[in-house]
Nucleic acid binder design. Sequence first.
DNA 1: TCTCCTTGGTATCTATTGGAAACTATCTAA
DNA 2: TTAGATAGTTTCCAATAGATACCAAGGAGA
Lengths: 125, 125
Amino acid sequence: MKAIEQAYDVFEDRCPTRLVLDRLADKWALLILDRLKSGPVRFNHIRRDIKGISQKVLAQTLRKLERNGLISRTIFPTVPVTVEYALTPLGRTLTDTVSALTHWAEKNMDAIFAAQRAYDEAYAD
Amino acid sequence: MKAIEQAYDVFEDRCPTRLVLDRLADKWALLILDRLKSGPVRFNHIRRDIKGISQKVLAQTLRKLERNGLISRTIFPTVPVTVEYALTPLGRTLTDTVSALTHWAEKNMDAIFAAQRAYDEAYAD
DNA sequence: TCTCCTTGGTATCTATTGGAAACTATCTAA
DNA sequence: TTAGATAGTTTCCAATAGATACCAAGGAGA
């Protein structure tokens, strides 16, 4: 049974994991997953929290995540209508990894900016 | 000193961590970092291993990763010239997270494809 | 009643990016 | 002298990203 775990290989072109990675490796998707970690959130709430995301991209990304089973979409017939997005159990298995990524970025910012300055100086012409 | 760890916030629009996340949250960058985990590799070797990547995108992505201090680029004056890419210490601090992501994709493929089928059936019209 | 506000989106337009293929330059081996 | 390897760059077209405007439904205030 253990062999099945390695049935897929990301490095293979035709491997379907590539399609998954394609959907996951997206700045907005990662930010949304990180934002949903603490509980269900509404569309415009996410939009206000994740500063700079456009409505179109938010709607597209939410739909992608929903289609891939990572988040759920629940409509409440209030007035005006309320739509709540939440992590599914599958989505929850991802959040630790996603948080690690975003927090790595927060922690290592300074090192990265130093590297950028060094690079730009070295290759300036 | 601990407060400094939270000096940046990915959810803020003007926060520079966004720029970092932008560079990291890229399918090809993740695959390259994962590929370099086991040691230095040459340009065409990476190209052959990561099936489907174009020369242009590989060159662009390597340059981005180099500029951000995650990988190093070493030229050996052999004939023909050899260029070796390797993880920097900074890059190595990222690989665990990156591996976690790619392997999550490999492991959860089936669940994701099941979700996609369910979604497509539900919304078919 | 009229207008503005909210909700959660679509539609449209343009600018940037992505990918495929061809091209560069240098040297070796056949 | 022609093909192959090295590590890229250039060019072109299609796909995506982002900004902006618009939509429908209903409530509140004037």
